[in-house]
């Protein structure tokens, strides 16, 4: 797994490339934590290149959302593939999180 970060205005963009499972999730979490520590309030997690994620990946998404929320911030997720989309749906995450089809959509009116 690899993480690429970028930004668009005051929005931090996190691109997760590869697999998020029990082994790789802690790395993803610590990368994201670094951004959260730097007063980031708006974040887009781009899953377009995420092969799949297990529940450890979902936990990272959830804890990120909670941390942002705690400081009046927001998280958007975008472009999950079919496998990840199914996982988000069945876990109910699609309902409680803001999931967008494309990165452009995720950045709009944020």
């Amino acid at each position: 797994m690899k993480i690429e970060t970028g930004s668009s205005g005051d929005i931090e963009i996190v691109r997760i490339i590869g697999i998020v499972d029990t082994t790789t999730a802690p790395q993803a979490e610590s990368k994201i934590q670094d951004l959260l520590d730097n007063s980031c309030k708006k974040m887009v997690i781009d899953l377009s290149e995420t092969e799949y994620m297990s529940s450890s990946g979902l936990r990272v998404l959830l804890s990120t959302a909670k941390k942002l929320w705690a400081k009046d911030g927001l998280l958007r997720i975008c472009q999950p593939n079919k496998v990840v989309k199914d996982i988000l749906d069945t876990s109910g995450f699609s309902v409680i999180m803001d999931v967008r089809d494309t990165e452009a959509e995720a950045l709009k009116d944020f």
Partner: peptide
């Protein structure tokens, strides 16, 4: 089973994995 209908703030982290397996 994880209650997948709970609001974000109420969500417990854990139990999700088996829910995914069953799915």
């Amino acid at each position: 089973e994880t209650d997948t209908t709970l609001e974000l703030q109420e969500r417990e982290i854990g139990g999700l994995g088996i829910h995914l397996v069953k799915f």
